[in-house]
Amino acid sequence: MTAPATIVLLHGFTQTGRSWDPVVAAMGERYRALAPDLRGHGSASDLRPVGFGEIAADVLALAPARFALAGYSMGGRIALDLALRDGGAAQQRIERLTLIGASPGLRSAGERAARRAADDALAEQILSGGVEAFARGWAAQPLFADQPPAVAAAAHAERLRSTPEGLAASLCGTGTGTMEPLWERLPRLRLPVTLIAGERDAKFRALAEQMAELLPDATLHVVEGAGHAVQLERPDAVAALL
Rank of each mutant, 00 (worst) to 15 (best):
D119Q: 07
R93Y: 03
R85A: 15
P148W: 09
F144I: 10
P149E: 15
R107K: 10
I78Y: 06
A135L: 06
L84W: 09
A83G: 11
L106M: 08
A123I: 02
Q125N: 13
M74Q: 14
G87V: 03
G129Y: 00
Q125L: 13
A145L: 02
L99F: 10
D86V: 01
A114P: 06
S103A: 09
L82W: 06
R136G: 02
P148M: 10
G87N: 10
E95A: 15
L99I: 12
F144R: 11
A90S: 14
I94G: 05
A79G: 14
R112I: 06
G88V: 04
V131H: 10
T98W: 13
L106I: 09
A102V: 06
A113L: 05
A109C: 07
T98F: 12
Q91W: 03
G105D: 04
D119Y: 02
Q92A: 15
L84E: 11
P142M: 05
A102T: 03
A117I: 02
A133L: 09
Q147H: 12
P148G: 11
I100V: 15
A109F: 07
P142Q: 04
D119G: 01
A114V: 04
G137F: 00
G110F: 07
P142F: 04
W138T: 03
L84A: 09
G88F: 05
G130H: 04
G130R: 03
E95W: 00
L97G: 10
F134T: 08
A113R: 08
D146R: 15
L97V: 08
D86A: 14
G137W: 00
G76R: 10
Q147E: 14
M74S: 09
S128W: 04
Q92M: 01
L97I: 08
R77L: 09
G129K: 12
D81C: 07
A123F: 01
A79W: 05
E111V: 01
L82Y: 06
A133G: 03
R96T: 02
L143I: 03
T98Q: 14
G137T: 00
L80A: 10
A140W: 00
S128V: 13
S103F: 09
A145C: 03
I126C: 10
G101N: 11
L84M: 11
G105Y: 00
A102I: 04
E132Q: 13
Q141P: 01
R107I: 02
E132F: 05
R116T: 09
I78M: 14
R136S: 08
G76E: 12
R136D: 13
L122C: 13
A117D: 11
A114M: 12
G130A: 07
A118L: 12
I100T: 10
L97F: 08
D146E: 15
R93V: 03
G75H: 07
I126N: 06
P148T: 08
A83H: 08
G137Q: 06
D120Y: 05
T98C: 15
G137R: 08
R112S: 06
R136V: 12
I78A: 12
A89P: 02
S73W: 01
G137L: 01
L143P: 00
D119W: 00
R107C: 00
A150L: 11
D86Q: 11
A133M: 02
R93P: 04
E132P: 05
P148D: 09
E124G: 14
L122W: 08
G129S: 14
I78W: 07
E124M: 00
G101W: 07
S103H: 10
D120A: 15
A89E: 13
G130V: 06
